[in-house]
Simulated scan of single mutants.
Amino acid sequence: MLGGEEGIAVSGSAELRCFSAMASLLLRGIGTLVKSLAGLSCGQAPRCSSSSLPSGISSLQFSSTRCFSERPTVRDHPKRPLSAYIRYFMDQHVILHKQHPDLKRTEITRKIGQEWKALPDFVKEPYIVAANAERQKYKEEVKIYEDHLTPLEKKVQKAERQQKLAKRKSSRKRRELINMGKPKRARNAFNIFMSEHFQDASGMKAKEKFKSLFDDWGILESSRKQTYIQLAEDDKIRYENEMKSWEEQMIEIGREDLIRLKQRNKLKKLRPILKGPKVASKKKKTSVSRLKQSRKTAEPNEGRKARSRISRHEE
C-alpha cells in the first residue's frame, strides 16, 4: 500500500499524462481542419441548402467566404511614367547639389525650372521621346491591369479613387484659403494651455506630451482655468473681426465662394433689397407679351389679304 505522498505523486503524474494526451489530440484535430480549409477555394466552398437545415433556420446560409475571407484589396496599379521635365530635373539635381551643396532644395528647384524653360527644343527632345515611350508602355500595362480586375476590385478601386480626389480637392482648397490670407481659427482654452506648456511637458513623443498635458488640464485649478477661458474668448472676438473684414474683401474681388455659408446666405437675402423692386422686369414682360399678341393678330390678317389677292387674280 502506497503512502500519502507517493499516492499524490502517482495521481499527479496520471493527470499530467491524461492532459498531454488530450492536448495532442486537440492539436491533431486543428491541423486536419486547417489542411481541409486550405484545400477549399472560394468558388468551391459548400453552402448549406435549405433541405439540409432545420425548418427554423432554413433561410440562413453558411459559407467559407464569409468566415475566412479578408477585406477585398486591389492589386498594385501600374506606376505613372515620369514626365520629360521630371527626367531632366532628376539628372540636373544631382549635378547642382554636388556643385552647390549649400543651396536649399527650393532654390535648386527654381534654378532647374528656369533652365528647362530656356532650353532649346533639340536639347529637350531626348527627354520628351523617353517620356512618350514610357507613357505608351504605361497605357498598355493599364489596359492589361484593368482587363484582369474582378467587379469587386473595380468597385474598391473606384471608391479609393473618389477618396483620393476628395482629399486632393480639400487640400487644394485649404492651400488656396491660406494664399488668400484667411485668418486662423480661434483657439479654445485647452489649446492655449497646451501651446504654453508643450515644451515642458513630460514625455518624448508628441502623443505622450499631449496625454500628460490633458491629465494636467483635468486637475488644474478652476481659477487658473478661468484665465485660459478668458484668453479663448478674446481670441474668438479677434477671429470674428478678422473674418468679417476678410469676407468683405472676398466679396469685393468677386470670390463669394470662399466666404462662410452663413454669410453667403445673408448676402443672397440682401441682394434683392439692395437692387430694389423688379419693376423694370415686369415692364419688359408686358412689352414682350404685347408684341407676341400683335404678331398673332397680324398673321391672320396677312393670310386674309393673301387669300383675297389670289381670288382677285383668278377672277
Rank of each mutant, 00 (worst) to 15 (best):
E140T: 02
I86H: 12
A45G: 03
F122H: 15
S287I: 07
K158M: 08
G303N: 03
I144H: 03
S212I: 07
K278L: 04
P72W: 07
C67A: 06
N132C: 10
Y138A: 12
L267N: 14
I192M: 00
P46W: 05
R110I: 02
W217Q: 04
A133G: 11
Q44Y: 07
G7F: 08
V34C: 02
R87A: 06
Q99G: 07
R105E: 05
P126T: 08
E141T: 04
K98L: 11
Q114L: 10
Y228N: 00
G203E: 11
S223K: 12
I229P: 01
G29C: 11
S41L: 03
E247H: 08
E233K: 03
G12V: 15
S245A: 13
R135F: 05
S20A: 15
F68K: 03
S281W: 01
Q162M: 03
M194D: 08
D234Q: 07
K139S: 01
T65I: 10
R185K: 12
Y138C: 10
K137E: 10
K184M: 08
L2N: 15
K282I: 06
L119W: 04
S308R: 13
G303V: 09
V156E: 03
E256Y: 02
V142E: 05
W116V: 00
R28H: 13
L2F: 07
K137H: 02
K244G: 11
K182Q: 06
Q249D: 14
P46H: 02
K268V: 11
M194L: 13
K296A: 00
W116H: 01
R255F: 08
T150I: 08
R80T: 14
G3P: 12
C42R: 09
G29E: 10
L27S: 06
R304W: 08
R28S: 11
S195Q: 10
S13V: 13
I219G: 09
L40C: 09
R80S: 15
D102P: 11
E299G: 01
K111H: 02
L26P: 15
L165E: 05
A186C: 14
T150P: 05
S311H: 12
I57E: 04
K209R: 09
N188F: 05
W217V: 01
E70V: 09
R161G: 15
S223G: 13
P46L: 00
S20G: 13
E6S: 07
D91Y: 06
L40E: 11
K182N: 02
A280D: 05
